[in-house]
């Protein structure tokens, strides 16, 4: 699940707080309220998130910041206008919102943005049990073998060893060699007498 950041950029505290309250009522998302557009510069380093900037209509972001955020994130800019005359989406913004919008309309908008973001997101890794081969690899990792040694021993290419290791880490969410060693022992892939705990763990 991609992390979500919502920024509400508006000089009016009433509007910032009110909109934040409405959003929090329906969605669990990180909301940052900023009174000045330049404050967003401090967040330009965000990457790989879904970002929704709700901004007073007419305001534009510092160019460099917007470019950077767009490049590294699913970036959506929503204009918030005070007048009710809607003429389609205004240039420079991805979506339009009106201060008179109902709760329902606000919810809908967020859902549309979320949907479009999840469409462009890459397929997630399957999260299953380890295959026999992956268990073999963990055992060798725990015994302290290098990728090359493992490849020779298991009769597979180094490339395959590396790909197994990547899958193991993704499935178990354990990255360090000592962590994998502990995993192997706790799950009886290895007996503690096979290793020197002082050295490996």
């Amino acid at each position: 699940m991609m992390e979500e950041n919502v920024f509400i950029l508006h000089p009016s505290e009433i509007i910032r707080k009110g909109l934040a309250l409405i959003l929090q009522e329906y969605f669990k998302m990180e909301i940052t309220q900023l009174s000045s557009i330049n404050d967003l510069n401090s967040f330009a380093a965000i990457s790989n998130n879904l970002i929704i900037v709700i901004i007073q209509k007419g305001l534009v972001l510092p160019e460099e910041t917007e470019e950077r955020l767009r490049k590294n994130n699913q970036f959506n800019m929503v204009s918030l206008s005070a007048s009710t005359d809607m003429e389609g989406v205004t240039e420079g913004y991805d979506y339009d919102l009106n201060v008179l919008a109902s709760n329902l309309e606000i919810q809908k908008l967020i859902q549309v943005i979320r949907k479009s973001a999840s469409k462009s997101k890459a397929a997630t890794v399957e999260n299953g049990d380890l295959t026999q081969r992956e268990k073999d690899v963990i055992r060798q990792i725990a015994l302290g073998l290098s990728n090359k040694e493992m490849a020779d021993k298991l009769n597979i290419s180094i490339h395959t060893v590396i790909s197994h290791r990547k899958n193991i880490t993704e499935k178990l969410n354990i990255k360090s060699i000592s962590g994998l060693t502990v995993y192997a022992i706790m799950n009886n892939l290895l007996d503690i007498s096979d290793i020197n705990p002082e050295e490996l763990i």
Binding site: L172, N173, I174, K175, S176, S178, G179, M186, N187
Partner: peptide
């Protein structure tokens, strides 16, 4: 990173496999 990795592994081991 390597220190952070170990701490995260420690947590996961305790949560998932202990």
């Amino acid at each position: 990173t390597s220190v952070e990795e170990k701490l995260s592994d420690l947590k996961n081991l305790a949560i998932k496999y202990l």
